[in-house]
Simulated assay, not measured.
Amino acid sequence: MGEFLGELMALFADGFVRRLRLARTRRRLAAGRPARIPCSARVDRPGEEAGYVGGRLLITPGSATVTFASSALRLELAAGGEFHEPEPEVWHDQDWAATAYRPPGPGPLVYLQTDTAHLPLLHAALAAPAAAEPV
């Protein structure tokens, strides 16, 4: 019974913490301050390993770029690109959603995965330079 209660507590605490982080991110962006969104990225470049790398998207309101940063990969994504169909279902789970983004100009397609609650913020940040307006 104790294990069951422990699992339930972890489940409810996780949802609560996620809602708090989302609210904090929205408040920071609405105030014109930079914010970080947990995210995983994969780049379609010839000769590179096709695996996701966990990191964070660094969004600065009014900036023309959004930065993905991790210990293994750093990408500067120009705002104003195109979103494409997400990857096949095998890349999704109930909490994470994927989207494909092609930055303007020549450049590789970048696959991004983030918590489903953060996906509208990610789309808004990459849609236009005045990107990080509250959703």
Rank of each mutant, 00 (worst) to 15 (best):
L58P: 00
T25F: 02
V90N: 00
P120Y: 01
E82S: 11
L109Y: 11
G15I: 04
V135G: 02
F12C: 05
A10L: 08
R24T: 13
V43Y: 04
E3P: 04
M9I: 11
P104R: 04
H84N: 06
T65F: 05
R24A: 13
L77R: 04
P61M: 08
R42N: 02
P88M: 13
R36D: 05
A125Y: 09
T60W: 07
A128W: 14
A31N: 06
R45C: 10
A132H: 04
G2K: 05
R26K: 10
R45W: 00
H118M: 12
V110S: 03
R45A: 12
G80L: 06
L20D: 15
V90T: 14
A69Q: 08
C39E: 12
A97V: 15
L121F: 08
R24L: 13
D95C: 11
L58I: 12
P108L: 08
A127D: 01
D93G: 00
A132Q: 03
H118D: 14
I59Q: 11
P106W: 02
L73A: 04
P120S: 07
T116M: 01
G54Q: 07
P61V: 13
R24M: 05
T25I: 13
Y101N: 06
L77W: 08
A127Q: 03
A132P: 06
F68M: 10
P134M: 05
F4L: 15
A78N: 00
S71R: 04
L29I: 14
E48V: 15
E89D: 02
R56Q: 13
R28H: 04
A41W: 11
C39K: 03
L112T: 13
L73R: 07
L58R: 00
G55Y: 04
M9E: 15
A13G: 07
Y101D: 01
A132T: 03
I37L: 14
G62D: 09
R74S: 02
T60F: 08
L29H: 04
G51W: 10
G55C: 11
R45D: 05
H118E: 12
A41Q: 07
G32E: 12
A128E: 05
H118A: 11
L58D: 06
L8I: 15
A35K: 00
V43D: 00
R36K: 09
G80A: 03
R45V: 15
E49K: 00
